[in-house]
Design a protein around this nucleic acid. Structure first.
Lengths: 341, 341
DNA sequence: CTGAAAGCGCTAACAT
DNA sequence: ATGTTAGCGCTTTCAG
């Protein structure tokens, strides 16, 4: 009982391996219904499992989707992964996971791995993409017809289809939301602005805030390096207070920073939202793990993953080239921001 | 430039494919140094990438490690994944990720996938293991010599090697820690106790607390179902206060619950640690995303992942059967628990 | 509708 | 030290 192949099934059924292959591979090739049933039954009974390496070798394509992300220890990417797996489940494809935070300069290994396995598709987070990777993925698409899908923000000049979130307008909406509540002195607080998705948020804030305040907005942007973003929030709470400027609200780069800000403010007995309003970004789990719960901009990460995987699967089936989807941000109103009186 | 095989390299070098294979597959078979260098150079130049499906088909083994976990949206599993990927990186193996929270009843697909791909090894979280999966993994080990490694807690009667954390003694240590600080009225607070790793923690608490209080410990265990564990903590803060019992400390099932408890207590103006001590469990990011930062039991998840992957790789290379590792818990002293005066 | 046979790219005897 | 050759298990023409 060590290894059942189509050969064994064929023998047991008194048929040729060709016929067996036709039914077991799910081909639409005409096979008599009885024959088909016989084969299915015998296969079932013998516990036949197709050898995907043999199949892949033959058809020049593996049955895995590679997912390339910076990390998985961050709720955006974690949800993304969940969305992707949920969609892939039952589709016949499995997920290969590569973390670029680890592969760093060694994206070469990664790409060779993809090519050597002849992965059917690739879902890559924008923040994992660099020129080298982009070139290699284009190469893969050319020589192996690998389907590529980008997720997160739209990279300028990138020719791959993707599921894109509009961080710029998200940040703009958050800022406008505070402005509409009557706030005119708003700080932007953040840890390191070291990724494109963060630079864009900052730009969105500046855009909206400049419309209110004119050009000199730079000094209201508080950025600091700390071990964690939470600590950056705590530290910046101090710095904001020390500034002596009369801030009544802040927009945080993300919910981690927002929660840190909340904690930092609390140490100074500044009440949120009574004395100070905060709006976060991401709507990750942290936004609901604090009191007051954070008003924030939702980034529907799981849905982004789901859609990316769905698009990819469709491309794979129809052999048509995929199209891009743009996801609109949305402000989730909770308890951390109120009208200024 | 569509597809370079050893055949092409052989031709370009005026050698046989056998020789080319011998050097390019990393075999230790003797090949003249010059020849070796020539082949390497030409391969490099042509951008040769070995076809892993062909290789796998031939040697009856894929080059991927399957990682099976309930989910990835939880910092324990996220770090585990990171540890595994870090170790796998550069080893020639890639990570296939399966989430059982999604596969649920359909573990069959999963196992067939593993078999069909002839995965070289499997790392499976204890909480993803059920009888069916265990049987199937044993089968895999038998017919394909697949290496299996369990992580997290040791499952009774499970014959696979693993990297095990001792939750029981962790919970015992946390409780004893509070007792040593002089606390005699201690509550255990938790969301649903629906996984083995949680049942064990509860048992560990009871064991230590009963040593102090005798048998009637059940009523000091506060458990409730809420949407999130954070909320459970908040809710249970109320319930503890409403109990009228004179608690001075609590042990939380994990840091999420602990942070919720902190928030719930704060709403009642109960100060931590001045009025009430808390000790968490896991030492995940939340423990440092609150003030005061949580004293907690460290579960070194990334290291568990690293060790599991290392053991697996060693098994794969040496063909020797793996051994188990037991990891000792450790209380991390921060700010949320103090001596009772 | 079914079967015979070629071959995907690679490794590993078995020659030389 | 190098070459020849037989498959690994599968899909897919091409014949019947």
């Amino acid at each position: 009982m060590s290894k059942v192949t189509i050969r064994d099934i064929a023998q047991k059924c008194g048929l040729s391996i060709a016929t067996v292959s036709r039914v077991l591979s799910g081909s639409s090739y005409p096979v008599r219904l009885e024959t088909r049933k016989l084969i299915m039954d015998v296969a079932q009974e013998c516990g036949y499992v197709p050898n995907m390496l043999a199949r892949g070798l033959k058809i020049n394509k593996g049955n895995e989707i590679a997912v390339i992300l910076p990390s998985v220890q961050n709720s955006f990417y974690a949800s993304l992964v969940k969305g992707i797996e949920t969609t892939l489940h039952g589709s016949g494809y499995s997920m290969l996971l590569y973390l670029t935070e680890i592969h760093e300069e060694n994206t070469r290994h990664l790409v060779e791995s993809l090519q050597g396995k002849m992965v059917a598709g690739v879902i890559v987070a924008a923040d994992s993409m660099d020129d080298f990777l982009e070139k290699k993925l284009q190469h893969l698409r050319r020589i192996l017809n690998t389907k590529i899908m980008v997720v997160d923000h739209h990279i300028g000049g990138c020719t791959f289809p993707g599921v894109y979130f509009d961080y710029f307008s998200g940040a703009r909406m958050a800022t406008d939301y505070l402005i509409r509540l009557g706030h005119t002195n708003i700080a932007f607080v953040s840890g390191p602005v070291d990724r494109e998705t963060r630079r864009i948020r900052l730009a969105g804030f500046k855009f909206a805030y400049e419309a209110l305040r004119g050009k000199n907005v730079e000094e209201d942007c508080y950025i600091c390096e700390e071990e964690t973003e939470f600590k950056a929030g705590v530290t910046l709470a101090n710095r904001i207070i020390a500034s002596g400027k009369d801030y009544t609200a802040a927009m945080a780069m993300n919910d981690s920073v927002g929660v840190g800000l909340l904690a930092g403010l609390a140490e100074h007995r500044i009440r949120v939202p009574e004395d100070f309003s905060i709006v976060g970004f991401d709507d990750c789990i942290y936004a609901q793990m604090c009191s007051p719960m954070l008003t924030t901009v939702r980034v529907p990460s799981e849905r982004i993953g789901t859609m990316a995987a769905q698009n990819l699967l469709q491309e794979l089936r129809n052999q048509q080239s995929g199209s891009s989807v743009y996801i609109e941000p949305e402000v989730i109103e909770r308890k951390s921001a109120v009208k200024l009186d």
